[in-house]
């Protein structure tokens, strides 16, 4: 069980990695839930707040600070059932472009968007499974996630 450098490894479930036989991201543990939630948010305290609330509700949560890291996760983790993404983020794409990509590449994955920018509301013309104004009550987000997944 080694955590290291090989980014070709495949995430096998929740937090276990199956490598290619070399020194990879290989951390094998018991498989747990079938629902992993990917939280994509560049403000660490906001990300921490919603991730904590979701974990307290019993979900496996994976945290990413931008769409690029989130796509890395989606390429390696098959158990992501739902993505919660901020709209305004640094990186190669914002949350709207990211959501469109999820719809086309991962059609079974639910996508919930959040933004503190009122102007973004009019732009959310793409298909999504929920929109939250920031700051939002994390308990309401968890209730929405439960409604979508349970």
């Amino acid at each position: 069980m080694v955590i290291g450098l090989n980014r070709k490894a495949k995430y096998t479930g929740d937090h276990s990695m199956e490598g290619d036989g070399g020194e990879g991201l290989r951390l094998r543990q018991d498989v747990r839930t079938s629902h992993a939630i990917l939280v994509v948010e560049d403000e660490v305290l906001v990300r921490l707040m919603i991730a904590d609330e979701l974990r307290n509700a019993g979900y496996d949560v994976i945290e990413a600070a931008n769409a690029d890291a989130a796509l890395d996760v989606l390429a390696h983790v098959s158990s992501v059932s739902l993505v919660i993404s901020d709209i305004r983020m640094p990186g190669s794409m914002d949350g709207l472009s990211f959501a469109q990509l999820i719809r086309s590449e991962y059609p079974a994955t639910r996508i919930v968007l959040a933004s503190g920018d009122v102007a973004n509301v009019a732009n959310v013309a793409i298909d999504h499974d929920g929109f939250f104004f920031k700051p939002y009550d994390p308990r309401k987000m968890v209730d929405h996630v439960k409604m979508l997944l349970d």
Partner: peptide, 15 residues
């Protein structure tokens, strides 16, 4: 900064 490294060690420590 590498999510694929951070994710498994964070989950291991939570477990």
């Amino acid at each position: 900064d590498d999510v694929l490294i951070r994710m498994p060690i964070a989950q291991y420590l939570r477990d």
